[in-house]
């Protein structure tokens, strides 16, 4: 499953990239809506700011979870191979990075439950 080297590196950084996407999305949307006083906007009966945060969190979390499972499988596979040490290393690093990313992405979703949208 190793795939190309570029693919391996992307998989290794998937969680952190997902975090970057989540971060950009939630910060960008909050800043734009609050900055322009559009915070009261609602979508499907929900306030748009917390909804963006939660959906961005959910999507990136799901993506990271997929990457985690994937990297875990390729790690197990790589471990079985006799020589390919680099594959083993990269896929192990991918497991660790994606695992940590899950925690970090979750943390970035917490504010939606605690804070008012734009105060």
């Amino acid at each position: 499953m190793g795939g190309s080297r570029t693919g391996q590196v992307l998989l290794m950084l998937a969680g952190l990239i997902a975090w970057a996407v989540q971060f950009t999305a939630i910060y960008g949307v909050t800043s734009t809506l609050c900055g322009r006083g559009w915070a009261d906007a609602t979508l499907l009966g929900m306030e748009v700011v917390p909804m963006t945060i939660l959906s961005a969190t959910f999507v990136t979390l799901a993506a990271t979870a997929v990457a985690l499972v994937w990297s875990f499988r390729s790690y197990r596979q790589a471990k079985r191979q006799p020589v390919a040490i680099v594959d083993d290393f990269i896929s192990h690093a991918a497991v660790l990075v994606n695992g940590l990313s899950i925690v970090v992405i979750l943390w970035h979703g917490i504010p939606a439950f605690i804070l008012p949208a734009c105060a």
Binding site: T30, S31, C34, V49, V104, H108, I110, P111, L115, A117
Partner: peptide, 20 residues
């Protein structure tokens, strides 16, 4: 004076960076 919500994301990232 940025919205508290915006600040909180950076708060979260700033605590997260303590882990590594």
């Amino acid at each position: 004076g940025l919205p508290k919500m915006s600040l909180s994301f950076f708060s979260a990232a700033s605590t997260a960076v303590a882990v590594p």
